[in-house]
Design a protein around this nucleic acid. Sequence first.
DNA 1: ACTCCACAGGAATAACCGGGCG
DNA 2: CGCCCGGTTATTCCTGTGGAGT
Length: 394
Amino acid sequence: MSDDILNDVFTKAIASKPLIKDREVLRSDYIPERLLYRESEIKAVGETLTPLLKGARASNLFLYGKPGTGKTAVATHVLQKLKEHASKLNVKIGLAYTNTKSSREYTALVQLGSAIGLTLPPTGLASGDLFTKILSYINEQGVNTVFVLDEIDELVKRHGDKILYEMTRANARLKRGSLGIIGISNDLNFKELLDPRVLSSLSEEEIVFPPYNVQELRGILMERVRTGFYENAVKEAAINLCAAMAGSEHGDARRAVDLLRVAGDVAEREGAGTVDEKHVRIAEKKIEQDTASEALRSLAIHEKLIVYSVMLSERGSTGDVYDRYMEICKKVGLEPVTQRRIGMIISSLDTLGLISAPVISHGRYGRTKKISLAIQPSVVKNVFKEDPTTSTLL
DNA sequence: ACTCCACAGGAATAACCGGGCG
DNA sequence: CGCCCGGTTATTCCTGTGGAGT
């Protein structure tokens, strides 16, 4: 029985010719040599940074735009070229990139410091001292420096704008050298979180990245297909569908490329000779399920139990879900929380997109949320198998 | 027009954590 | 090491409310 399955897998794997030539190219964070449709942005970023090549200070710069519009790609691309140019001209400049989303303030500073050639202790100093150290190094070396802070909104949301304030004021403390900031943010409303003084000096110049339209997404995908896949491995219709799907959301190139890669995987695994629309559709579902699983996994135990309660609930009212939840708690031997809290959890699960919970009124029979699962029950079951507490429920 | 269900969801407050600091 | 702090989780108490039924 299992032999048959394996035989099937093996024969398919051998019979099928590989479709993907270079997996690296198909990663959504891959930065191609030539960035399509971002010429004017590249030029603008380049122009603000050219003073560095003449040994002068660069203006601070802010890059805004929805996810997958090429902000990071443009920034790192320009940084790369600038570095090459500087070494050719024998000009000393400091360029550093860091993504502040996952890292803490401290690690971000260490990263920036080490990128400009300063070795810092990975722990032990206060962030303030750390920054002072970086500044005095810049001063010593007299080097004009630019820090790129990607997803800067995350940093500010977690740690406030203190560090940005310090950075924007740094030039006043420097006798030699300079420090410029390039901030990158997905969140257009993020400006409101900033101290006006920080905002005005940080956005000396700003560039808004527009979303890609469907034509442009097609172009980007064609390029990736050309370098990432073997010849004729991807049907044109499949490319068009990827572009259309990504375009209908918000012109997200990252999503388009993800769709393409996963579709390629699917097609390859099932031994198809080419990637076609069918595979793209499967890819869309697969990506959706993967994000749902990911979200599900990261839930706290009570939240997981609520998801399960919603799955079991027939009426889908808050009270009904709460009753099921109480039963489940008894079954797994956990102290239940109050209904008020459950209300909050239901709301947060709703915003996560795992369940749907609009408020509706049944008139005489009260007012409640109409709660239903927004994802496949099979996905929930698969994830709950991993957790020892939830696995006992089935 | 009025009632009244079954909650929604705000406010205040307590309990609990993780981590930075002297 | 204990202490404090800010953030999250949870409880208590509460007022508010859309609309089917009367």
